[in-house]
Design a binder for these strands. Structure first.
Length: 455
DNA sequence: TGGGGTTAT
DNA sequence: ATAACCC
């Protein structure tokens, strides 16, 4: 019999092991974080697929947008998220490739994350083209191996932000320099093994690492020493450039007269907490000082798989069903390759509206267990029952007897669980995130409302 | 504005 | 189920 005390012990041992984030010895809690950011990722993948595109101005198109482009195109005035019309106007020689199918980008993206995980297992993905790695442990190991002669010969790899003087007697400087060495090795490995170039930023937390990685652009790296962190954050022209402060928060801050990072630093904490809520207020005000204690959370395998398609107009149930079938077919291939089984399915729509084009509605429900079991297994028809469920979710959201106008459909498979032999009552049971009630974030998961679809 | 993702409430 | 954030 396992006592609750023992379960507690195993839980913490599990956290320390999985997260691998042991604070360096000596009482210091200073970390070394690298942010790795691939150069115009989709365009790079396209140039690898078709080398004839190299050297030409290249844009990747989704619908009527150029979502990204290579540096040849940028030199000629093409920007990210420019419309195809504007881009062609600016740059008539622009070569366009369609990038609506993300399969090759997604596959290359995970190859990058896996490569970085070989350096240290603590890798957090941010989108398809960015990764954070916590180098604290690796740096400490290398630093302790350093002989006295090697320490005095230690040099920085890449740029030092603000051309700051490096002091080899300062242990924080030494750690960050070792971090810059590892960052250089990571970029070298990405180029040699995958043919990809990118930037890296090394600093003491995720916010600063991310900000400093973009200082020298493309295919370069920069390290931030602690004494220059204020210079870095003050270099931002507006609070909206701060990662973590998005569209909505920016609007609310502007309503309070807060525009610059300095404005946010000096604004009354009490009033900010009343306006934005204590959680957001405290977090973003810390960010404004360059403080960010959020851990690098290992992403691991994806939590959800989704496929979406946007269009000018979908106004009939048959049309919707055809699009939903297409989305689902792709998803089933992906989920089959992954091996895990989704236990929840969700349908997302966007209704036409001249203004609020961002708002989406969704309905989700459990996938019946007999359907889950048939998921990986060959040619059993799993499409029909799942399309039936999706159409019920559809009719739950859309009154098909009334005229409707949709501009997006999306299907999401989530609540993924590993096939496992772990039995209830064993240690494995409590250590398997998908089985115990403890989610990856270490917080209690709570029940989501599922819409009930009758058979 | 695309086609994805995550976490918090 | 939605709203916020990220790319």
């Amino acid at each position: 019999m396992i006592s609750s005390l023992n379960i507690f012990f195993y839980f913490f041992a599990y956290c320390a092991l999985v997260h691998g984030q042991v604070v360096p010895e000596g009482g210091s809690s200073s970390r070394v974080i690298v942010h790795v950011d691939l150069d115009c990722f989709y365009a790079q993948v396209e140039m690898i697929s078709n080398p004839e595109l190299k050297g030409k101005p290249l844009g990747v198109q989704q619908k009527y947008l150029v979502v990204t482009c290579n540096y040849e195109a940028r030199k000629l005035g093409v920007k990210k998220l420019m419309t195809v019309r504007d881009a062609k106007e600016k740059c008539p020689q622009l070569v366009l490739v369609n990038g609506e199918d993300l399969t090759r980008y997604r596959e290359m993206s995970y190859k990058v994350t896996e490569l970085l995980e070989e350096f240290s297992p603590v890798v957090e993905r941010l989108g398809f083209d960015e990764n954070f790695v916590d180098l604290t442990e690796m740096v400490e190991k290398r630093r302790q191996q350093l002989q006295s002669g090697e320490l005095s010969a230690l040099t920085v790899w890449g740029h030092v932000y603000n051309d700051q003087y490096v002091n080899l007697h300062d242990i924080l400087h030494v750690r960050l320099l070792v971090g810059s060495q590892i960052a250089a090795e990571m970029r070298e490995a990405m180029y040699n093994q995958l043919g990809l170039t990118g930037c890296a930023g090394v600093a003491s937390n995720k916010l600063l690492a991310k900000l400093v990685s973009g200082v020298f652009k493309p295919n370069q790296q920069t390290v931030l020493l602690p004494e220059s962190s204020q210079v870095l954050i003050q270099s931002l022209n507006h609070v909206k450039e701060m990662p973590g402060i998005g569209y909505k928060t920016t609007k609310r801050l502007e309503a309070l007269g807060i525009r610059s990072v300095r404005d946010l630093q000096t604004f009354s904490s009490k009033i900010l907490e009343k306006e934005l809520g204590i959680s957001v207020a405290q977090r973003i005000q810390k960010l404004s000082f360059g403080e960010d204690n959020s851990p690098v959370t290992p992403s691991g395998p994806p939590q959800s798989f989704s496929e979406e398609d946007s269009f000018k107009k979908c106004s009939s149930e048959v049309e919707a069903k055809n699009k939903i079938e297409e989305l689902l077919a792709s998803l089933l291939n992906r989920v089959c390759q992954d091996g895990r089984k989704p236990h929840t399915i969700r349908l997302i729509i966007r209704r036409y509206s001249p203004e609020n084009h961002c708002s989406r509605e969704s309905r989700q429900c459990p996938i019946p267990s007999h359907v889950i079991q048939k998921l990986g297994t060959g040619n059993y028809d799993v499409m029909t029952p799942m399309v039936d469920i999706l159409m019920k979710l559809f009719r739950n959201m859309v009154n098909v007897k009334m005229p409707f106008h949709l501009t997006l459909l999306s299907v999401c498979l989530c609540n993924l669980k590993a096939l496992t032999t772990a039995k209830k009552g064993t240690i494995d049971y409590y250590l398997t995130p998908s089985l115990s009630t403890t989610s990856r974030s270490g917080k209690r998961s709570f029940k989501m409302k599922d819409t009930h679809v009758e058979d």
